[in-house]
């Protein structure tokens, strides 16, 4: 594949990623308010989060000030995101592979940031690519990231195959996802060892993406690696691998959403609008006709029918 084809393809794949990543994320964020479904422990409960307590432990809680511990909540998320705390505590056998898999990705995200900064610096002439950070720091970070990610991917693939429960629920698509990421890590690791000017060539390629320079030189393995990387990104929004975005909502907007309705507030208005919709459930006791609203249905206890 020529460099120009790769660059044009990269633009397309990155555009797909950007558009659908935003759309998918917005879809999650714009769902209607739901009924309360909190689950202890809620870490922002000041002085009680550590044992799972909530403001509902206070008599006449509505008369008491509600104090939230945002530091405790942030600390909880930091440990969960960075170290996969829940998996460590509840499924250690999987953590040994899942942690390097995810931590490898975090290192690679860091490496990509360095790569983008180095390429931008080089294109604008503000910094040289021979700086230690770009010449040594970036490939070192990427190499460790690739190695950890590959170790994790191999371990997760095998675990899914042999562990009874996981094997039963793992579809071909999930195996494909792990293989795809494993290939991405594998080609990256191979390139970082086999391409003598790994740092210079990758910085040059990203710089070419910024400037649309179709004459850039790139080793074959790096072409394969970048193609896999951008293809993965374009594919990502359509998969369960978007769970890292979903997780924000499952934690903050479901498990930890213990916000009571304020009379006259924004949430109450939204709920009143939702209650004005007309459900079409067909169960005979629901007595929906496509016109009755939730309010009509919820206040219809069957007394009228009984009278008839």
């Amino acid at each position: 594949m020529s460099a120009s084809t790769l660059i044009l393809l990269s633009y397309v794949l990155l555009a797909i990623f950007a558009v659908f990543f935003v759309l998918k994320s917005l879809k999650m964020a714009r769902m209607p308010v739901h009924v309360r479904w909190e689950l202890a422990p809620v870490p922002h409960e000041k002085g009680r989060g550590h044992y799972g307590g909530s403001y509902l432990e206070d008599a006449e809680w509505w008369t008491k000030p509600r104090e939230k511990d945002h530091v405790a909540e942030a600390t909880y998320m930091f440990k969960e995101i960075l170290f996969l705390k829940a998996l460590f505590e509840h499924k250690r056998s999987l953590w040994w592979f899942s942690f390097p898999f995810h931590f490898g990705m975090y290192l690679l995200i860091g490496a990509v940031v360095l790569l983008a900064l180095g390429a931008l610096g080089s294109v604008t002439g503000l910094v040289g690519t021979d700086m230690w950070l770009f010449a040594t720091g970036y490939p070192l970070l990427a190499g460790v990231g690739y190695a950890l990610g590959l170790l994790g991917a191999v371990g997760l693939f095998l675990t899914r195959m042999v562990e009874k429960g996981m094997a039963n629920s793992t579809t071909y698509a999930t195996y494909f996802n792990v293989l795809l990421l494993g290939s991405l890590f594998g080609t990256g690791l191979w390139a970082s060892f086999s391409v003598s000017d790994f740092s210079g060539q990758t910085l040059g390629f990203i710089g070419a993406l910024f400037t649309a320079d179709m004459s850039v030189e790139l080793a074959g393995i790096l072409k394969a690696h970048f193609l896999l990387a951008f293809a993965f990104l374009a594919y990502l929004p359509f998969t369960q691998m978007m769970h890292f975005v979903a997780k924000y909502f499952t934690y903050h907007e479901i498990r930890w959403d213990d916000e009571p309705v304020e009379p006259g507030g924004k949430m109450e208005k939204e709920i009143l609008e939702l209650l004005g919709q007309s459900p079409t459930w067909a169960g005979p006791h629901v007595r929906a006709d496509g016109k009755k609203t939730w309010v009509d249905i919820a206040t219809d206890t069957g007394a009228q029918e009984a009278e008839k």
């Binding site: 769902m31 499924k91 562990e163 499952t250 479901i254």
Partner: peptide
């Protein structure tokens, strides 16, 4: 329950924890 249900539909990774 639309948001909790949709997220549980789409994003289970099958880890069996």
């Amino acid at each position: 329950f639309l948001q909790p249900l949709t997220l549980s539909l789409e994003y289970c990774i099958g880890c069996q924890t």
